[in-house]
Computed example of a mutant assay.
Amino acid sequence: MNNHEIDYKIYGDDMQFVEIELDPDETAIAEAGALMMMDDGIELETIFGDGSQRGFMGKLFGAGKRLVTGESLFMTAFTNRVAGKKHVSFAAPYPGKIIPMDLSLLGGKIICQKDAFLCAAKGVSVGVEFQRKLGTGFFGGEGFIMEKLEGDGLTFVHAGGTMKEVNLEAGQMIRIDTGCLVAMTPDVSYEIEFVKGVKTALFGGEGLFFATLRGPGSVWVQSLPFSRLASRVFSAMPGVPGGSRDEGSVLGGLFDFIDGK
């Protein structure tokens, strides 16, 4: 195994965090800002790229791939520098689920949405997966670029709401909302399908396109994409056309009258 072997425990239900147990000299990597807490004796180090490359050019290339996906050039490494087991915890950025994925059991690679990666054992490579089909790139919800996680260790991804893993047999196909795709194994065929029927497309409320996924392989689907959550929050903000103001307040209507609204 090239990756560090780490143990973990996930806490919580909707606002989860993962606690990783590190043996001496074991390291976990995480996105900047994911840290929740850590024991004394763990050394924190900012690294260029994801830490899986060696040499200056390898590190530069790895950092460049992260820049293309919209992520920071740097990640943070957490290493246990003392004797005995130590713990470090990473929190989910918004309500949802943290899913552990053992890459050694998934063919050494998964493809996921750009903001799904949370943390991993050191040695996991965080790279770029380009969509080769024009329609998928334009209308697939994630654009032409998705994240690629490679290695043979544990990685943790996060998505909104509840997550479901769907195992597809050879030739089996499912259609999902383009924003609900979290991750998939590389052997899954990913295409975009236009919603049939003008009336359904314009007034159905489900958008103009479906993501069509065909097996064999595994697919992870989320019930609440962050874009949908953000859209609902924004539409309910005061001052936004159609938004709410002083919701639940008996005096809300009086304040609106005084303000001339």
Rank of each mutant, 00 (worst) to 15 (best):
L149E: 00
G179P: 00
T178M: 12
A170K: 13
L208R: 09
K199T: 15
E150G: 10
T155W: 05
I176Q: 02
V221H: 02
A170F: 04
E165S: 05
V182E: 00
V198M: 15
D152R: 11
V195I: 14
G143T: 06
P186C: 03
G171M: 04
M173T: 15
D187Q: 12
V188T: 08
G161N: 06
G204N: 09
L154R: 07
H158E: 04
K196P: 07
L168I: 01
E193W: 11
G204D: 05
T212A: 12
A170W: 00
A201M: 13
I145R: 01
A159M: 03
E165C: 08
V198F: 14
G205D: 13
P216D: 12
I176K: 08
N167Y: 13
L181D: 00
G141I: 06
L202P: 10
V166C: 09
D187I: 10
L213E: 04
G151D: 03
G205C: 08
D177S: 03
M173F: 05
M146Q: 11
F226T: 15
F194S: 14
G151I: 04
G179C: 07
T185Q: 05
A159T: 01
G161P: 04
R214Y: 06
L224W: 10
T178G: 06
L154F: 11
V221Q: 02
T212H: 12
A159W: 01
I174H: 02
M184D: 09
G179F: 04
K199Q: 14
M184C: 11
E150V: 14
E142A: 05
I145P: 02
G160D: 01
D177H: 01
V221I: 15
I192A: 11
W220H: 06
E193L: 09
I176V: 13
E206L: 05
G141C: 04
G151K: 00
K196W: 13
K196N: 11
N167M: 12
A211R: 04
V195L: 12
V221Y: 01
I174Q: 02
G171Q: 07
F194C: 15
E165M: 13
A159D: 04
M163Q: 04
V157E: 01
E142L: 04
L202E: 14
V157N: 03
G160M: 01
E206D: 09
T185W: 07
Y190S: 09
L213V: 10
G141P: 02
V157F: 09
V157K: 03
T200L: 14
P186V: 07
V182W: 02
G160E: 03
Q222I: 02
S227R: 07
G204A: 08
M146P: 02
P186G: 09
E193C: 13
K196Y: 15
C180S: 13
F210C: 03
D177I: 03
H158T: 10
I176T: 08
A211P: 11
K148C: 12
E150I: 11
A211S: 14
G141Y: 03
F226E: 14
M146G: 01
V221E: 02
E193F: 12
A201R: 14
F203S: 12
V188R: 07
P225S: 01
V198W: 15
E169T: 02
L181T: 05
E150S: 15
A201T: 14
R175D: 13
I145F: 09
M173R: 13
T178K: 13
P216I: 08
M173N: 12
K164S: 15
Q172L: 00
M146D: 11
M146L: 15
M173C: 12
N167R: 06
P216K: 08
I192R: 14
